[in-house]
Every structure is written in structure tokens, then in C-alpha cells.
Design a protein around this nucleic acid. Structure first.
Length: 307
DNA sequence: AAGTCGTGCAACCGCAAGAAA
DNA sequence: CTTTCTTGCGGTTGCACGACT
């Protein structure tokens, strides 16, 4: 398979972009639009390779890019999605409007990752680092004593991770959406290309839904975290059905040796369901898991998910 | 004032995948 | 079907800058 080497031709400029170069590229894209980046440098009068132009446009010049500090909400979203997805920066970026994958990746590497390590958490799994592994992350140096690891923060992170796992474990796919417009199902918004969407979407009744939007929707749209599983009272029978479905799913998943979702995650979900009260029930979440066990496994593994 | 170190960020690189020829 | 082109992704590098010694 062929591929374009960046700046393979001698004579292409490298390094930081000058304002003049930015202006040229900006003017070109505004006039002609982007695409066919290989031909852009010549047409725009730039001594850069096409790949460099594309990157500069995407990461810096695009008009809808938001720069500056990340908000705590963005921070939280990144953590949750990373706990679910790992280093899938482009997918995570798709859920943070106006942020580029490069920016998020940098933010993770320079900020969140270090915070995790300081707290004694594995940046890959978000779980507490085992004592004998701790030194691998530089946390085992003599100065890094227990008192520098704020246990409250560790607990917070662990909670966030479990939340993320729990959210990933439930699929709000439902079969009667026409009756319940308040359901938090969203069609894939987005800048996501069809090719990238297949790894994070589900198709149901010929409609593609974005799994991670669903997960995040439970963050944003519900009155309180505790109400995540709220249902209207007339749907309680449905809920019990779904609890059974969920329990069945759980049983099935638990039998998979390589499927490592913590017991606590399931406990969170079950506790919330069992604590449902009619009064604060405002949003219908009918289907705990109408999806197959295999689909859930695929989701949590970050693999392609379709049915 | 000069040197060192740490941090943040822009940019580069290699690779993969899909589209087009 | 194969080859070439194009786009996109994620890991990594290197520079600029501020803090510190």
C-alpha cells in the first residue's frame, strides 16, 4: 500500500509556521476550500508539504477552534472517555466541540496523565498502581511517600473510572422512541466521518446512534447523577424487565474470563436501579440493555460495534 | 547574569485504511 | 485485483519559555 511521506521532496520547509504562511494558507482555504492537500502548497504559494498544510489548518487555522485552558467539564469528559476508550483521541475530540485531537492528546500527556501518576493511578487503566509497579511510573522514588498521594483524590478518580465503566455498560437503545421523544438518543452529530463512526455507533432501526454521546448524555442532561436511571412510574414494569435483562447480561459477562469489568461497576448500576423513587423520576430510560452481551463486550473493548 | 531544568505545545513521522485509477 | 493517492490517527520530538539555582 502506498503512502505519502511527509516532506519527502527536498525543499519543503519545516518547523514553525510564520504569520505570512498562515495568511497564505488561510486565504487559499477560504477561497477554494480544503481537500486534495497535496496540491494546496503549490496553489497557495507555500513551500510546505500538503500534510503539513493540512495539519496546520486542522490544529490551528480552522475558524471554530477553541484555544486556552480546558474547563473542568472538559477535563471530566476527557477522563471519562479515556477510561472507556483509551488513547482514542480523535473520538474523544469528537465529543469536545472546538477542541482538536492534538490539543486533547497534549493536554492528557502534560496534565491529566501526570496528575494520575501523582495520585498513584495507572494512566492506562485509571486504576491504582500496584505497589511493585509504582516505581515504573516514577512514583516509587523515595520522596514520593504516601502523604503526597491524596487518598480523597484517588477515590475520586476511582469513582470517575467506575462511573465511566458503568455508563459504558448500559446502552440506552430503545425500541419505542417515537413514543418517548424525551429519550436521550442522538443521531451521530458530527464531524465524524462514516468510517470513524462505525467504531462508536450502533445502528438501530436504520438509525445510527452514537454510543459515547449516549454515555455522555447521562452526564449532561440528567438532573443529577443519582437520577441516571430514572424512569416514569408507568414504565416500572419495563424497568424490572430490564433489570432482569441486565442481570442476565451481567451473568453472561462475568463468565468471560477476559472481560474485566469490575464488580463495583455493576453494583453501582444495580444500587441505582433499586433506589429509584417515583418522585424524582423524570426521564425515561427504558432499555438497560436491549443490546446483546457480545455488543456490550465489543463496546467496552473499544472495538467495532454493529448489529 | 548565566546555566539548567521542567513544562507546554506545535509540528513531524510512520503507519493504516479507504478511495480512486 | 493491484497499485497509487489521499486522508487521518497516534506516538514522539524538539523548540520556546519560564522558574529555579
Amino acid at each position: 500500500m502506498g503512502r505519502m511521506r511527509c516532506c519527502e521532496k527536498v525543499g519543503f520547509k519545516k518547523g514553525p509556521w510564520t504569520p505570512e504562511e498562515d495568511n497564505k494558507l488561510l486565504a487559499y482555504v477560504e477561497k477554494h476550500g480544503h481537500g486534495n492537500w497535496r496540491s494546496v502548497p503549490a496553489k497557495a504559494g507555500l513551500e510546505r508539504c500538503g500534510k503539513s498544510c493540512r495539519l496546520r489548518w486542522i490544529n490551528y487555522l480552522k475558524p471554530d477552534i477553541k484555544r486556552g485552558n480546558f474547563s473542568s467539564e472538559e477535563d471530566h469528559t476527557i477522563i471519562q472517555l479515556h477510561a472507556l476508550l483509551g488513547n482514542k483521541w480523535s473520538i474523544i475530540a469528537a465529543h469536545l466541540p472546538q477542541r482538536t485531537d492534538n490539543e486533547i492528546k497534549n493536554y492528557w500527556n502534560t496534565n491529566i496523565k501526570k496528575r494520575l501518576i501523582r495520585m498513584g493511578l495507572d494512566p492506562l487503566t485509571h486504576k491504582p498502581i500496584k505497589r511493585n509497579n509504582f516505581e515504573d511510573y516514577g512514583g516509587g522514588h523515595h520522596e514520593q511517600s504516601k502523604d503526597t498521594i491524596n487518598m480523597d483524590h484517588v477515590a475520586q478518580w476511582e469513582n470517575a473510572r467506575l462511573e465511566a465503566e458503568a455508563r459504558g455498560s448500559m446502552l440506552q437503545v430503545e425500541s419505542h422512541s417515537s413514543h418517548h421523544p424525551q429519550l436521550m438518543l442522538r443521531k451521530i452529530p458530527t464531524q465524524l466521518s462514516p468510517s470513524s463512526s462505525d467504531s462508536l455507533s450502533i445502528k438501530h432501526n436504520n438509525t445510527v446512534y452514537n454510543m459515547y454521546d449516549l454515555i455522555l448524555a447521562t452526564n449532561r442532561d440528567l438532573p443529577s447523577p443519582v437520577s441516571t436511571f430514572s424512569v416514569t412510574s408507568w414504565k416500572l414494569p419495563l424497568v424490572s424487565t430490564n433489570i432482569k435483562l441486565f442481570t442476565d447480561t451481567r451473568t453472561s459477562l462475568s463468565s468471560e474470563a477476559d472481560f474485566n469489568v469490575s464488580e463495583t461497576s455493576f453494583q453501582i448500576i444495580e444500587d441505582r436501579v433499586s433506589n429509584l423513587q417515583d418522585d424524582d423520576i423524570t426521564v425515561a430510560v427504558e432499555a438497560f440493555t436491549t443490546a446483546s452481551c457480545e455488543s456490550i463486550q465489543e463496546l467496552l473493548r473499544g472495538s467495532t460495534l454493529t448489529w
